[in-house]
């Protein structure tokens, strides 16, 4: 969610159990402004909180001209001093996918992972144990990238892609109507489209090229079970919670430009989802 007016935005997701203490929200409002200035971001987003056993990570994201690609992620343990997270490359993400369990809350903590490699073939095969040390900072970067990729949500029409390929905020976006906001196909994954490229020409015929350049979330697998859409104040506020990443809350006030998402959770994917529906 946007850091501008954070105290208002955070109250939209209050029904999901997401609250910031007065001290935290005051500290964030101060430090995020400085952050925006120092890193020369166009806009700064308060991304959320990943709670660890000993401490919590507060995450902020800043973006440049292109809202989708030019994003940098920063973390802080005390809401005041911010550190830039390493870029989650595919190698880091593969490496960190083996770590399970909760975050500790110490960026320099190292997880030990023993990888068993098989050498040779047939009878000569010998097993060799490789110990890999994985830094929590890397894991944090990998998890945030994964959450962004899988469950970051924006309403349809909130962003446009210019002919140059730049993704910009749509100035004339006026919010979804109440009936439209109750339908999952009006919300998009905020990532480079994956499924859109697999669609046939016939399916793509009716799409608006500048608006429908993202994947709608209703196609997620398991269908009908990945998201929980809820009208909070009757029809005055829509919240969408991801069941795959519990803690990811998206809100949108119908017929207004207010929308955003925040993740407050343990940073663990819900692998049991198929059994729980």
């Amino acid at each position: 969610m946007e850091s501008e007016g954070l105290h208002l935005n955070i109250s939209y997701v209050g029904s999901c159990g997401t609250v910031l203490s007065a001290e935290q929200s005051a500290a964030l409002q101060t430090s995020l402004v400085i952050l925006q200035n120092n890193y020369k971001f166009n806009r700064v987003f308060f991304w959320g909180k990943i709670s660890g056993i000993k401490g919590d990570y507060f995450i902020a994201q800043g973006c440049g001209n292109d809202e989708m690609v030019e994003r940098k992620t920063l973390y802080s343990l005390d809401c005041v001093t911010w550190g830039l997270l390493p870029l989650a490359t595919q190698a880091i993400r593969d490496q960190c996918s083996v770590v399970k369990g909760r975050f500790i809350g110490d960026p320099s903590h190292e997880y030990e992972h023993i990888e068993i490699q098989k050498l040779g073939e047939g009878e000569d095969a010998t097993e060799e144990e490789n110990t890999i040390m994985i830094k929590e900072e890397d894991r944090l970067a990998a998890v945030i990238a994964k959450i962004d990729e899988e469950v970051a949500v924006v309403p349809r029409g909130a962003y446009v892609r210019t002919p140059h390929g730049l993704v910009l905020k749509n100035r004339s976006f006026e919010g979804l109507s109440v009936t439209e906001s109750g339908k999952l196909h009006n919300y998009f994954h905020f990532r480079e489209p994956v499924r859109l490229n697999e669609k046939t020409l016939l399916e793509k015929a009716d799409l608006d090229k500048s608006i429908d350049f993202l994947d709608p979330i209703h196609e997620d697998i398991p269908r009908g079970g990945s998201w929980s859409l809820d009208f909070v104040r009757g029809g005055g506020l829509v919240t969408i919670r991801s069941l795959l990443w519990p803690g990811m809350n998206f809100y949108h006030v119908p017929q207004s430009r207010k929308f955003g998402y925040i993740y407050i959770g343990t940073g663990e994917q819900n692998k049991d989802l198929p059994f729980m529906l």
């Binding site: 209050g14 159990g17 609250v19 001290e23 909180k49």
Partner: peptide, 13 residues
């Protein structure tokens, strides 16, 4: 008290 800890629901609720 819970709000200080960052737990709870919004005040109106």
């Amino acid at each position: 008290h819970f709000e200080q800890a960052g737990v709870g629901v919004s005040r109106e609720e």
